[in-house]
Design a protein around this nucleic acid. Sequence first.
DNA 1: CGATATTAGTGAGTCGCACTCACTTTGTCA
DNA 2: TGACAAAGTGAGTGCGACTCACTAATATCG
Lengths: 251, 251
Amino acid sequence: MSRIGTRRQTRRPADRSAGRSDGRAPVREPAPRVGREQRVLDILQAARAEFCAKGYEQALVSEIAAQVGVVEGTVYKYFATKRELLLKVLEHWYEEMFGDYARDLAGVEGSRQRLQLLIWRHLRTVRDYPQLCQLMFFEFRADRAYRGSELYAMNRRYTRFLTDVIEEGIAAGEFRDDLEPALLRDLVYGGIEHHAARYLGGEGELDIDRIARAIADVLCDGIVRRRTSETLRMEAQRLIALAEQIDKKSS
Amino acid sequence: MSRIGTRRQTRRPADRSAGRSDGRAPVREPAPRVGREQRVLDILQAARAEFCAKGYEQALVSEIAAQVGVVEGTVYKYFATKRELLLKVLEHWYEEMFGDYARDLAGVEGSRQRLQLLIWRHLRTVRDYPQLCQLMFFEFRADRAYRGSELYAMNRRYTRFLTDVIEEGIAAGEFRDDLEPALLRDLVYGGIEHHAARYLGGEGELDIDRIARAIADVLCDGIVRRRTSETLRMEAQRLIALAEQIDKKSS
DNA sequence: CGATATTAGTGAGTCGCACTCACTTTGTCA
DNA sequence: TGACAAAGTGAGTGCGACTCACTAATATCG
């Protein structure tokens, strides 16, 4: 991680090497000056890696700084606290993800299919970014400052896709009209979160196709055993037949 | 909180009052000696209050010790770390709660009703112990040491009630036989957790009757509008017409 | 009862880490 | 070239979790 010799060394201040009698120069070279935006991106990247690797509490700001090649104080020049840093890391990630939801959704017909697509997409995100999801679900959601943060608003926008699909389904007559979209949303995202907990903890796999199908299936059709329409019709017919017999006899 | 003068003061060690020139004696009197079990209970109680009031991170072990009237080191004599203390607080709470689940359940007939009862009971717990639930859902679940802890096992036993009800429902023919009980469990508990988040954050109310009904309803009957209803109604009408004819003739 | 072992309790620490701030260095622009 | 702004520094400070060598109250036993 030594940057010695990578940049010119003129005008080294006197106190830098003061007290050093040996030839080596363990004093670190100041990091190359770089624009604010670039530094912010560097720090975000290093922070993301650090948080993902160790979780929030175990992550060290000093380690993040070291990865970037700057000193701790520099990190605090751009981010007020460690928590804010986590917040920005997650916001940055969300921005990456957003784009193609609307586009993907546009290509699918039918409320039920669209619902299943959203469930599947969410599961795919969980599968592909387990550590970031872990941070999002546990570290951040627990924060008292969660509500009111920009990330909270982003999350609302994200889950909005699902409540919209529900509402469209109701309007189209495909779904019952006595549903609470918000409750459905909570069942889906909360359910997925719970179900993925084992996987997020590092154990087992996540069969996203199967689970997406199973969730959409339960939500759409319910758990109560249905008499198939065939059975129902047969029963109705039997009733009709009986009634007709009675009718004949009584006449 | 001063205990000065409540116990004899013979043989006070020399360094206790060393350096004190004024008359007051701000040196604290040692806490009265008490059995290990009693101390553990005292500490658990104070810790529960502290964690509930401030959340895990903001809670101070020194404050817990002060509430009990002992010194910080005493707390660490009985609990190795702050996290273990949280763990034991939650375990202690779980033990309180367990008892009457099986009893309550025994009084209800029908898988659907039993399911709704479990949902309602869980919601009631969330409503009555919001801070403890907050700790359970966020602080503790996030912990990497969650799995393998006694509390985890207790939680499994708790949610087992629900998967049992599902399985009984399947066996009784009331529920579909292609369900995954574990997935249902995750939808219920995860969904409730998500839905209660606002309430847990201190905003709004929790209408547990309405929500319990709504969740049970969605899960049981699904969200899809039944297509067979049109056909069924026509057939029902045919039956009604026949019955009316019979009624007329027989009168 | 007195000697000894056991255990509750102490408090002055250490240590790690988030966060601060007065300062230096570098780049920019009149 | 001198002044100003912005980037970067590193030696702190403070706080709170955790430790440990010790003191003193109680239990045990001849």
